[in-house]
């Protein structure tokens, strides 16, 4: 049964709520019935391969485009632009005026969100100094490196101290050092109680940062919940190496166990590790090594979205 976001009352504890969002571009359906619930104060990851509909979903949530059908509520507002002064947004394709000074670019983004130009410039100077770009404050954007320009835009996203930050593929194009800085900045904002939504096709980032995720594939939400819940959909993996190749112990491992080199790999049976261990010992397996691995988000993603979507992500996760 379809539910609808109440037009009068926001669900307590949710910063963003979307129900059955659909977006058609001509004959093409880019987003097909996406429903999301983003808890207030959480770091929420939107995972999916390129073209899955992540950016279109974010644009609908922000009110940049209207959905063809469905409803959304952002920070208690049915019209997201009404909450614009409490939202920060970093789009996937970065955009800054090349001739503007770094501080003016940040102040301009603040002015768009309701700050005065003077206050924006003051805060911009503070932020730039905090992030090691104090000397670049009065330099034009075109004189900055790509990483610096991205940092400037990110600072412009948070200058007005928003309650909700939306980052579309924020790590794209950043080197490892700047990725680390960005992760730290996201964590710092989250510690301050800010809700953060970011889209990514790099599972490792989501795994390190997110408490909640939604997996989007082909315009639909395949999963929406906590990272633990996603991982919990898979049973732990057992990696077993024995000294004895055949014997009664073989009946203790599942039929679909696969042999990878000199070790057996299979899902932990229903009873858990103790019955398995007992059966292996009683069956004379001669255990050389036995490891029980908790599945990574990548494995959960493959299980939820399918191998095709995982291949399209083209990334590595901790499960690998």
């Amino acid at each position: 049964m379809l539910r609808q976001v109440s037009s009068s009352v926001a669900t307590p504890g949710l910063a963003v709520e979307a129900v059955d969002l659909v977006k058609d571009f001509g004959e093409t359906r880019a987003v097909d019935g996406v429903s999301l619930s983003v808890p207030t104060g959480s770091i929420y990851g939107l995972l999916g391969p390129n073209g899955a509909g992540k950016t279109t979903t974010l644009r609908m949530l922000l009110g940049i485009i209207d959905p063809s059908s469905g409803t959304r509520r952002v920070l208690g507002h049915d019209r997201p632009l009404e909450a614009a002064q409490e939202i920060g947004y970093l789009p996937e394709e970065r955009g800054l005026y090349p001739s503007m000074y770094a501080r003016d670019a940040i102040a301009f983004m603040g002015a768009l969100r309701g700050l005065t130009l003077a206050e924006g410039r003051r805060r911009a100077d503070v932020l730039l100094t905090e992030h090691g770009l104090g000397d670049w404050s009065r330099r034009s954007i075109r004189s900055l490196s790509k990483g610096m320009a991205q940092l400037v835009q990110l600072l412009g996203t948070i200058i007005h101290k928003p309650r909700l930050i939306v980052l579309d593929e924020p790590f794209a194009g950043l080197d490892a050092i700047n990725q680390g800085r960005l992760e730290e900045l996201i964590r710092r904002e989250a510690r301050a109680g800010v809700t953060i939504i970011f889209s990514t096709h790099v599972i490792a980032h989501a795994e390190r940062l997110c408490e909640h995720i939604a997996i989007i594939a082909s315009g639909q939400v395949a999963f929406d919940g906590s990272v633990a819940e996603a991982r919990g959909r898979l049973r732990p993996i057992v990696r077993l190496r024995t000294r004895v190749s055949e014997g009664p112990w073989r009946s203790a491992i599942p039929q679909d166990a696969r042999c990878e080199g000199d070790e057996w790999v299979f899902e932990l049976p229903e009873g858990g590790p103790e019955p398995l261990l007992r059966a292996l010992l009683d069956g004379g397996a001669g255990i050389e090594t036995l490891a029980i691995e908790r599945p990574g988000l990548h494995d959960a993603f493959v299980a939820i979205a399918g191998n095709k979507a995982a291949a399209a992500m083209g990334t590595t996760g901790t499960g690998q």
Binding site: L62, G63, I64, A84, I87, Y89, P91, E93, G95, L96, Y97, M109, L112, R113, Q153, G156
Partner: peptide, 8 residues
Amino acid sequence: IIEVIAAA
């Protein structure tokens, strides 16, 4: 840039 402006 239009994307940033349109969101604000």
